[in-house]
Design a protein around this nucleic acid. Structure first.
Lengths: 247, 247
DNA sequence: GTGGTATATCTGGGATCCGAAATGCGACCA
DNA sequence: TGGTCGCATTTCGGATCCCAGATATACCAC
């Protein structure tokens, strides 16, 4: 291992499996066999079990005593609730950020906002299918980057942690979505909302920023719901064989 | 073990330790030795370690690789943030509850509200010190019961889970507080706010219920802050010897 | 042929063992 | 006398082993 800083194998493995789950590489419902994972990562079952315990506490997998763990499935209601929670948390973070954002941070925010707008524009210019899907990862990351700046400015680590945890519930599937011209308006609206939020932050309008942030997250749910409908109302399939995690 | 339903030792132990932490029995900063815990619970270190992993994921303890785990300390800022988060979550839950509460549930809510009001009144009638402290546990439980009804009515399991998790950060210390006549007004205000929330729910005023719930949680922070000042600005001490968990 | 039961096998939970990292203490040297 | 190096002890992370619970399968009775 070319590991410099402190970390246990259990932690490393948990992160890899977590990434595999949220990216959709591991389908919800997949049963995770401890022995299989142990030989995949070339470790014994002990760190595997500790990693799984951690993921269970995070709600990403569910333990059934003596019957193994499986990747947690998320229903439409749970997805909706996760968005409602994130809407409240984002509203709070954005409200606080409005009171303390500096010019430097505003400039940084504008940069990531424009990057997001550009990617969003590129996305809409592409035809649906693989061409579009290939930039969805960038789109998701740029979107996260915008909100991450706000979290950092707000300086509320607990809010940030919870919001990101909530975000993990649904950021994966979007990456696999093929896209469709009918929702291009929603993508454009999303980018526009980012601009409005930044302007409210620049104006120091905490009440306005709060309301805009809340609406933004809630309307993002509409976007994701539409995306999910395109893939048949169920979860997108991973490309490679399931239950195989890259070490 | 007189265990009927499914559960692993790691889960059982995690719950016991968690209870010990949130109740203040285990002081923040305490170093938890795996071997000591294993002989306390009469199990090997394996389930202990898995339990600690779970608690670490929940943020109750922090792992330092090769140097053990210690009970997480919580600063005043973190406490404040936890309350802000809970305020948002309670606001959301109460808003939703207002749209779907039934007469039966309203009656139940009124019952627990009155129980809380009664305990609150008893509390204020007592002199500070042990006499008052002996009912603080009842006061905390009755308070939780009121909010739990709202969570149940709202039917938002994620919100409920997060709010309760946030609540755990600070419900413990209040139990050990000796109390003081100077904050009797805050106790009374708390009970009064419960009444206002119930009335808003009865009226089906979701916007009003939301605002009242938010204010209620935020003003509860003022109450707890005052309580904490009484114990010298630091955390109250447990009564029995630290690092001993009842099995 | 079908249903139930017994058994074999598989998998996960827990115990024990081993190696490694970190701390503490003591001895030796400047 | 003070500081540093090194060894011993402690404690953790990881591996291996064992046992119990669960599922699947085969066999037998009806």
């Amino acid at each position: 291992m070319t590991q410099v800083l402190d970390s246990t194998k259990a932690d490393d493995i948990a992160l890899v499996i977590e990434e595999a789950i949220v990216s959709g590489e591991l389908e919800p419902g997949t049963v995770l066999r401890q022995e299989q994972l142990s030989e995949q990562f070339n470790v014994s079952r002990t760190p595997i079990r500790e990693a799984l315990r951690r993921l269970a506490a995070l709600g990403l997998v569910s333990f059934v005593p003596n019957r193994g763990v499986r990747v947690r499935t998320i229903s439409r209601e749970e997805l909706h609730e996760a968005f409602m929670v994130r809407a409240e948390l984002e509203a709070l973070a954005t409200e606080v950020a409005a009171t303390k954002i500096t010019p430097d941070e505003l400039a940084e925010l504008e940069a990531v906002e424009q990057r997001f707008a550009q990617i969003s524009k590129d996305l809409r210019a592409r035809e649906p299918g693989d061409a579009r899907r290939s930039v969805m990862g960038d789109w998701v990351r740029a979107n996260h980057a915008f909100h991450d700046v706000i979290y950092r400015v707000a300086g509320l680590p607990l809010v940030e942690q919870l919001a990101k945890s909530s975000r993990r519930s649904f950021s994966g599937p979007a990456v696999w979505a093929p896209g469709d011209h009918s929702i291009d308006g929603l993508y454009a609206k999303n980018a526009e909302q980012h601009r409005a939020i930044r302007q409210a932050l620049a104006a120091g309008s905490s009440a306005g920023a709060r309301a805009l942030a809340r609406d933004h997250v809630l309307s993002s749910f509409v976007l994701l719901e539409t995306i999910l409908e395109q893939v048949g109302g169920s979860w997108p399939q991973p490309k490679r064989a399931p239950a195989k995690v890259s070490a």
